[in-house]
């Protein structure tokens, strides 16, 4: 299975997202081809500063993807996912906008005719990869490890195409398929504060503590996320909590790698701020 991959800017320096995504995709037979010369999607920032520039940034990405052949564009970042799919829709609906963008793109030898579909890597793992690949691939017995899924805001909102906007279950399906014990809790789609953690640290800190509290009250051993910014905020945002009360925050790709028996050193687990190792000792 080949997909066009939009890594996004936060992917490379995050806590092992790149390492674990690559290792798991290799194991499971998925070929992620990075869109050549991809640029930043503009995130929520450009939409709030200049909507025309925001459309141009995403337009360039769709054009580069089209040049490579219209495979689905897959990304592992919630912000990239929502920004790209927002403009996927806008460009499809608004011919005048498409024309304006094409006019500018022509100066770079690019253009848009057919717009690729934007998808999240979790969607591919759950809906394209057969269940048996995960179930038969299990090498580690992980059923004693309780994992709380954390979706953040922008996977299921605003539209909820992939799973319910406020009570989604796609991540829990995946957690079960890997053999971990999914934990049901009320903080699945509460906001982590995103980039507000920089200028509004105190206010964002409250949100992060509420999320961790909600998950740890259900006696989870780990939290699992699907977005680099969510992972960063939940991992870093626990630094004020007592050591015994902290939960390691892993990417869903790292959970997959653990289940598939991929060595920890290939999953970038040493890059987490709150270490995962203690969990295994505790549970064995």
């Amino acid at each position: 299975m080949t997909y066009l991959f939009f890594p996004g800017c936060a992917y490379h320096a995050s806590a092992g997202y790149k390492e674990s995504t690559e290792a798991v995709c290799r194991e499971i037979g998925i070929d992620l081809k990075a869109i050549p010369d991809w640029n930043c999607c503009g995130a929520t920032v450009f939409m709030g500063m200049d909507m025309d520039e925001a459309a141009l940034l995403t337009g360039r990405i769709f054009a580069l993807a089209e040049k490579t052949g219209n495979h689905d564009i897959v990304t592992g970042c919630n912000a990239c996912f929502t920004t790209l799919r927002k403009f996927e829709k806008k460009l499809k609906e608004d011919q005048a906008l498409q024309q304006t963008i094409n006019h500018k793109l022509a100066s770079c030898g690019l253009g848009i005719k057919k717009i690729s579909r934007v998808r999240h890597l979790l969607d591919v793992f759950v809906n394209d990869v057969p269940d048996s690949a995960w179930e038969h691939g299990r090498k580690n017995s992980v059923d004693s490890i309780r994992a709380g899924g954390y979706y953040g805001c922008q996977l299921t909102r605003p539209e909820g195409e992939l799973s319910h906007p406020e009570q989604p279950d796609i991540l829990e399906q995946f957690i079960s398929r890997l053999g971990f014990a999914p934990v049901d809790h009320s903080a699945k789609t509460m906001c982590c504060g995103a980039s507000h953690a920089v200028p509004y640290k105190k206010q964002s800190g409250k949100l992060i503590k509420r999320i961790i509290k909600g998950i740890s009250l259900k006696e989870a051993d780990v939290v699992t996320t699907i977005c680099p910014l969510c992972q960063f905020n939940l991992d870093n945002g626990q630094s004020g909590l007592p050591k015994g009360g902290r939960l390691p925050v892993l990417f869903f790709t790292q959970l997959a790698g653990i289940s598939l028996g991929i060595p920890f050193s290939d999953l970038g687990l040493d890059k987490l701020l709150i270490p995962f190792k203690g969990v295994l000792k505790h549970r064995r």
């Binding site: 709030g48 909507m51 922008q154 909102r157 507000h196």
Partner: peptide, 29 residues
């Protein structure tokens, strides 16, 4: 508008289907 974090919670729940988050982008701009 600057505190709006684009979580889209309001937009999902608005009974009159007002695109609150998108209007916050408009106000920021």
């Amino acid at each position: 508008p600057w505190y709006c974090v684009s979580c889209y919670q309001c937009m999902t729940r608005c009974p009159k289907e007002i695109a609150v988050t998108d209007l916050m982008y408009t106000l920021k701009e």
